[in-house]
Amino acid sequence: MGRELLNVHRVLRPALITAAVVILPAVGRAETTRQRILAEVTLLKTISAVVAILLAIAGIFLIERLTSWLSEKVARRHRLLIKQSLPFLKGLILIVTVSYLLEQFLNLNQNNLLALSGTLAVALGFAFKDYVSSIIAGVVSLFEASYRVGDRVRVGEQYGEVVGYGLRSFQLLTPDDNTVTIPHNVLWTDPVSNANSGHLEAQVTTDVYFDHDVDVDLVMNILYQAAYSSQYTQLRLPVIVVMQEHLWGTQFKLRSYPIDARDEFVYRTDLLMRAKRAFAHRGLPYPRPQLSSLHHSEPQNRQAEQSGSPSS
């Protein structure tokens, strides 16, 4: 037994010596690098870091509340300006806080930055890929202005006003008063439809349908007047009526702008009420019920229109 152990020792000794010669300096080097990257951690630094983080959280909370409150108090035309400042202010607080923390705990020189970014890239690439993707998309969106706080956007099946803009996601307030959280990285893959792009007004389309025999001049005149007479209409922007033929009837689209995009639904209701009263007063014929089955042919119809062939 003792001889066997002696033999093992004799065999392993050179290997152990070789390993010690190779590994121990590496461990020493790693220790030196860590010491170089990390600055000395003291109690004062730790307390100041905690205070900085708490201040940042409080600042972001206050800015969110303040912009939300102030934007509803100021004149309507300044509302979006204040709302749009929210992500920039939050970003500013984050940058300042992160910079302060890095400066406190890391020795940032060229070599350290390279080493650190390599480590971070590996860690983030595996663990927080989607999170980082959302953050980058959020920053890109800030400058592309695909959607801003106060805009009315459609992303996928969700439509509503952008009411929050976070690091990873933004919040939509739907017409049903639901808040939908959507990650910024949908920007890479999904189309984002923005109705007002930073303006107070957003076009509202109001559809009405009639029988083929309807007096089209009369309908168009009523629709124009409905838009001009509504108190919600922004008269400085164009009002347009377009029409489209279907197998089952004639469709009229009234395109106009409310003074405030928030009034979109109440505006459309007002337009329809005005127009329908006038239609009823003149007895204009709506599409015949027996033709409603032709409605099913609409998808083919639409495809034909898209390919350039006449719709009717």
Binding site: A75, R76, I259
Partner: peptide, 9 residues
């Protein structure tokens, strides 16, 4: 002033 600020003509 109030109406101008509220986007009315």
């Amino acid at each position: 002033k109030e109406l101008v600020n509220s986007n009315h003509f």
